[in-house]
Design a protein around this nucleic acid. Sequence first.
DNA 1: ACATTAATCTAATTCCATTAGTTTAAACTA
DNA 2: TAGTTTAAACTAATGGAATTAGATTAATGT
Lengths: 210, 210
Amino acid sequence: MEKKKRLLTPEERRQRNHDEMVANILEAAREVMREQGVADLNLQEIARRVGMRAPSLYNYFSNRNAIYDALFTLGMQMYQAHLAQLLAQYGTTWEGIERIIEGYLTYALENPELYQLLFERPIPGYEPSADALAESRNLLTIAHEMVATAMATGTIQTTQSAEVVTNMIIVIMHGIAAQHLANEPHLPVGTGRFGSLVPIAVDILKKAWS
Amino acid sequence: MEKKKRLLTPEERRQRNHDEMVANILEAAREVMREQGVADLNLQEIARRVGMRAPSLYNYFSNRNAIYDALFTLGMQMYQAHLAQLLAQYGTTWEGIERIIEGYLTYALENPELYQLLFERPIPGYEPSADALAESRNLLTIAHEMVATAMATGTIQTTQSAEVVTNMIIVIMHGIAAQHLANEPHLPVGTGRFGSLVPIAVDILKKAWS
DNA sequence: ACATTAATCTAATTCCATTAGTTTAAACTA
DNA sequence: TAGTTTAAACTAATGGAATTAGATTAATGT
């Protein structure tokens, strides 16, 4: 009978408010990046949108790059969740590989600001922190394991190493996304000069490797 | 007997000095971009290197973006010369295609600042001018003609359209260069996780299309 | 009540791009 | 040759943005 739905202690309430504000700031930052370009992140504008002045942001992030870094980590986690879902659904089949390539483009179109931050580097003064980069190495491991499984089960048949196969898939996946984003970012997945190449590229790989 | 090697008129001398200074500024700008990143082009630093103060640069360029634009055009002309040379030497053979892919990576490694400006966009507030973009459309035309010739002469055999073939080659070429530059920019052409994929990628295409 | 602390603010600093206005020296003109 | 024009430089000023310093407020803890 002590507590049916225990009230929050002041400490917890403070923490919750703080976390909420962090989330709000990141959300506002993504909006600004989408509207004004990834590199033009403007602290005054973020502050305006969350209802404070720019210097107050420093209670939540130590500087502008810390905001980029939080978004880098967030974006990496989002992409990994997206990828894990595809892997669970399709496994390591050729269809799965096609879905993964398509999924990379989907992610890029749905979250262009995060995509650019994660996979198209040069933000003026920003380099991902060691923590952020660890997430990104994790992603490469997942890709490599997927390819190794596909080779072990015979889906992919080639004398090339799993590393070469992985890298080639990355090249094609990234090449398509980069060109689509640069030239026809408004067109949906599966359409346009580059977006429509996904199944064609997979056919070419299939012809070479099965 | 009028003039053995005619002296320059004052007008010509003035023009020559002006042109020289423009070239010096662009050279200094490339240095700064290489050292501090493409997006961090700093007018004070350029000015220091050519021996003047920042506002004096405005006698030669109307603003910072005009410098980017001049470099865009310069870089595009350099790349086209590079490409024309390869085309003349190897023609539209499979070896020629391999050299072109390799040549794109070579250009990217030798002129990383121009490569990023030309082929990896987002410089904060800069969009290429119409003139600069015309150069870039020209490049696509050259690529498309090359592929059409290769298909007409039977080097490339496929039911795909020349446009699809061109775009796929662009995807692979750019994908390799982007990954190499992002991950192992210090390694020379032909080496590293991505640089070594060039011949492998060409083999895959050859298997699919000949 | 008093002290602490988080969260906010305003004001100040620094770094840039860009503009305004001035000076100098060369070149043209009468 | 003297006076005018013009290119090319300068210094000083403006305005935007990140960041730091210092003061204030309000909630919490003792």
